[in-house]
């Protein structure tokens, strides 16, 4: 006879596995996020220059007489590309371990959720786990396709 405590324990195990698998999936996306941040910094620099040009035109070029403003035009942004390269390099082996962790935990969660027969809760867990596995696979593919571009640059 299955007691309520056993059922609660099994549900807690399934829920914990699901959360840990999502954590692994998010960690898997770190190199891609660093690459996006690098790209975003490029966009931020462009916007910064656009704002400076607007200020110059609004002041009818008179602000160019100010030395401080001229220095702002020449300011260089920090080079973050080496950091992104380091992250990509360190993830060479880690990413496949993370993918394996995501898939194993995800499949375990799906199996346990199907055995629970817990109505809406089981269905939510199965869907969440499936989405997580797909995202992890996509993350790996994106990493593999951008790796040569980042490390080769």
């Amino acid at each position: 006879m299955e007691t309520i405590q056993n059922m609660q324990l099994k549900e807690r195990i399934t829920g914990t596995l699901l959360r840990l698998s999502w954590l692994a999936a998010i960690v898997l996306f770190v190199p891609m996020l660093s690459y996006v941040m690098f790209a975003a910094m490029g966009i931020a620099k462009i916007l910064y220059m656009v704002v400076l040009v607007i200020i110059i035109m609004a002041t009818a070029f008179l602000i160019l007489l100010d030395e401080g403003f001229r220095n702002a035009l020449n300011a260089e942004s920090a080079d973050v590309m080496p950091i992104v390269r380091n992250v990509y390099q360190s993830y060479t082996t880690i990413i496949y371990i993370l993918l394996a962790v995501c898939v194993v935990l995800g499949v375990l969660t799906i199996i346990l959720a199907m055995k629970e027969h817990n109505g809406k809760s089981s269905r939510k867990r199965i869907i969440s786990s499936s989405v997580m596995i797909v995202l992890a696979l996509i993350g790996c593919i994106v990493y593999a396709t951008t790796r040569s571009k980042v490390l080769g640059a």
């Binding site: 807690r12 914990t16 959360r19 840990l20």
Partner: peptide, 12 residues
Amino acid sequence: FWIIGIMGFFTP
């Protein structure tokens, strides 16, 4: 579950 769930953050 507190330990496995990393200080209880990743357990329901």
